[in-house]
Write a protein that binds this DNA or RNA. Structure first.
Lengths: 216, 216
DNA sequence: GTAAGCTTTTACCAAGCGGTCAATTTATCG
DNA sequence: CGATAAATTGACCGCTTGGTAAAAGCTTAC
């Protein structure tokens, strides 16, 4: 009778039915599949509804628009995505911190490639939905960690280098294995494209960054 | 009267009118803009026709389908994109070769960001149109250059490392500045996001790879 | 049970999409 | 010039798209 009122009220009062909780999760899971594989524009509500095992109007009962699904997905991913960088500890040993950051980012590329591609898609299209988040929270976090790295370099614990571009290079090299997966597989060929490629990548990247940052 | 016959005949005989030459170029230029900004699915023929300053039927007079435009664009980009890697010279000095490869790739990210994003979009979507090209010509080229790098490592000219992941890391770090441009700008902030960021990146990357690959 | 609210579906719509057709305008060349 | 081929366009088509309306089914609490 009240149609969408239930969802609207749930949103206001933060109180959700068990079904609402479950179905919204189901939808987000399905949407992650579809959005990460086809981008925002390439994804269709029919595909998502299908993947979630429900009808399109039913899907739209839980999320009012396609954009609403996408926005919530992006928000969620953005948070978990920056977790490794947040864990970056100024008090820790520089070498160990950087090494473990690389390892964690690479593990995320391996274990959450959909999340990585969702994010990559968004940035590639010019980040129309999250430009503010990039310029605000993200920039602040990076600024903070860049200062840590700069301090390490000043006190001679690692080589002098531009901390921002260091972070960029760790992001790009690790995410490459999720975002450009098809290319990586194609180039490595059937023989070397097994899951072992992540261990090889880890070994290479740790070597590169550890030697590249060693004080000289 | 003959409608599309002219184009078909031109395709067979390889003889094109001046107008055909010009207009096809105009269309590809416009399509590069649109495809790189929105991806294949996100781009519309109306947008491309608009950007090319002609009507949609007129556009379809020169290219029979949307995919035909995209295919030709991808083919063209793929060729020029691998130019720097082809120039990689087994006879050259390892350090100079790698350094100049990084520099050239970074210059391409700076000067041809649309081409980079077009390619990135295609790979992100699972490379539906070019998987064969990746597994064939691309893989062969990389295999060849990987052998060169491996030989350098064996003869002690550079540090031992996995040549494939070395190439991946150069690709990813350099293309990052084209594909993730919005993010890079957002994080660097207005003060540091000028064109100088490419020089900073070049300095950092050359340092990282040169030290990371130094024999030890 | 039953009434109230929550969930789901069938049928539908307007807009946007890639692409076609037929007719008109423009260029080319003897 | 005039004729023939090439280039261009407005009108249109069928399909897909995101989204809606309304009613039917289902849960839950009393």
């Amino acid at each position: 009778m009240l149609d969408r009122m239930a969802i609207a009220r749930a949103a206001r009062t933060q109180r959700k039915t068990r079904i609402q909780e479950e179905k919204q999760e189901l939808i987000l899971e399905a949407a992650l599949d579809v959005f990460s594989a086809s981008g925002f524009r390439g994804a269709t509500l029919d595909q998502i509804a299908d993947a979630a095992g429900m009808s399109k109007p039913n899907l739209l009962y839980y999320f009012r628009t396609k954009e609403a699904i996408h926005r919530q997905l992006i928000d969620r991913v953005l948070t978990t995505w920056l977790e490794p960088l947040r864990a970056f500890d100024a008090e820790g040993k520089p070498e160990a911190e950087i090494r473990s950051y690389i390892r964690r980012k690479l593990e995320m590329a391996r274990d959450f490639p959909r999340e990585s591609r969702l994010f990559a898609n968004e940035i590639l299209q010019g980040a129309p939905h999250i430009e503010d988040e990039l310029k605000g929270p993200l920039k602040e976090l990076v600024d903070e960690k860049a200062e840590v790295i700069r301090a390490w370099a000043r006190s001679g614990k690692i080589a002098k280098c531009d901390p921002y571009h260091l972070i960029f290079s760790i992001w790009s090299t690790t995410q490459h294995y999720a975002d450009f997966d098809v290319q990586v597989r194609a180039v490595l060929g059937q023989a070397n494209a097994g899951e072992g490629r992540f261990e090889d990548a880890a070994r290479f990247l740790e070597g590169l960054f550890m030697e590249g940052l060693r004080v000289r």
